[in-house]
Amino acid sequence: MKATTISVEDLMTQSGQVPYTKSLKIQVVAITDVVNYRNDKNESKSLMNAAVVDHSKAVKCTIYDSTKFPRFKEGQYLILRNVIKKTDGVVVTSNTKVFTCAPFEFELPAAIQQRGREILNPPPAPVVNVKEALDFPPKARVTVRGKVVQEEATREVFVTGVLFKEEKTKVKNIYIENTSSRCKVSLWRENTEESVRPGDYVQITDVVTNSYRNEVSLSTTFRTKISTYEVDPVIALASDETCPLNSKDADSVDPVLDLSPDFPISSKLDSNNNSLEIEEPETLFDSLGGKLH
């Protein structure tokens, strides 16, 4: 490999979050739909995500320059120059140079390619009871079931995204419980619009654990789905493994756990607009949503 190039793995071990002039040669193994959003100046912007790999590692690549979207196609080989390294991947901006190139001399490992696809579309998290969920380390991704016992009003907080841009974001806390424990679940962005009320039995998929001031709670991600169930009240009170009699928009969940952390978005206001430091454990893309092709 020439001195002017760097592997994905070597790049991700570099310190700091600044543009890197060395080139990355990568293959695109998965892409998302384009996501539209508004920045802190209320300007309409768009982004897309791609999973990119080389022989050493798979990472997420967030593209903010819409003129470069067409170059990121599944199977395409690219040279990237002047990318920004982030905690969970790389960022392509208007200053990034993107060139098409020839394939790698050797076929890339199938395991790395599969890991790249799973970055954008990981297996669903397993169902665990509330107490087990709260015992997992921060950023663990789980699915929980329980009865909604409290609902707070939706509020707006300022969050800082991947490019350090602040935006107003909706958040609402609900509290669920089963026979094992009770916990707070923070519903972010479009999840605040979910029609769940105290007394409902819900399954909330793909939430992540979050710890602040010795309180462990759960937060939604862009993958989160909330299903409401009708249950036998005797069964509901007697067991954490509540069996639904009927469900609305319920999906099956495979027993797979992803403990890889999401890039945090800091929120600096609480429900009383007091300054504090909590984390919304989603990338800007994650919180806005996306779909794997």
Rank of each mutant, 00 (worst) to 15 (best):
C61W: 00
P124A: 06
V149Q: 02
L276R: 14
D262L: 12
G89V: 05
S186P: 03
V256K: 12
E167H: 02
V142K: 02
E152T: 04
D232F: 04
S271D: 13
I6P: 00
K139D: 13
Q76N: 09
N178W: 00
Y64M: 04
I63P: 01
P281I: 13
F106H: 13
A30Y: 00
Q17M: 12
V256I: 13
K170V: 05
V35F: 02
V148K: 05
T100S: 15
N121D: 14
L47P: 02
C183R: 03
I235Y: 07
V53F: 03
L288G: 06
R81V: 04
P109L: 08
V171Q: 10
C183D: 03
D88N: 15
E177A: 15
A133Y: 02
R155C: 11
Q76H: 04
V53I: 07
L218Q: 01
V92I: 15
T67E: 10
R115C: 07
L47W: 05
Y77M: 03
N42V: 03
V90D: 00
I6T: 05
P123H: 10
E193R: 10
V185P: 08
V202I: 09
K22A: 09
E193K: 09
H55M: 07
P123Q: 07
V98T: 11
W188C: 06
K97H: 09
H293C: 10
V185Y: 04
I174Q: 06
L120P: 07
V231Y: 03
E118V: 08
T205A: 06
I31G: 00
N39G: 03
T32P: 04
D33C: 08
I79M: 13
D254A: 14
N49A: 14
P281T: 11
T192W: 07
G146P: 02
S247C: 15
F263N: 11
D200L: 09
V35S: 10
A50K: 00
K291T: 15
Q14V: 11
F158T: 15
T4C: 02
T209M: 04
G199E: 05
K22E: 10
K85H: 08
M12S: 01
T154L: 11
A3L: 13
E190I: 07
Y175L: 04
S266I: 15
S181R: 09
L187A: 07
V208E: 03
T32H: 01
W188M: 06
T179W: 00
N129L: 05
N273T: 11
T209Y: 01
S227R: 08
E230H: 10
F158K: 14
S211H: 14
S252Q: 06
S287F: 06
M12P: 02
I84A: 03
Y201T: 03
N246E: 14
L245W: 07
M48K: 14
P70S: 04
N129V: 01
P122R: 07
A236W: 03
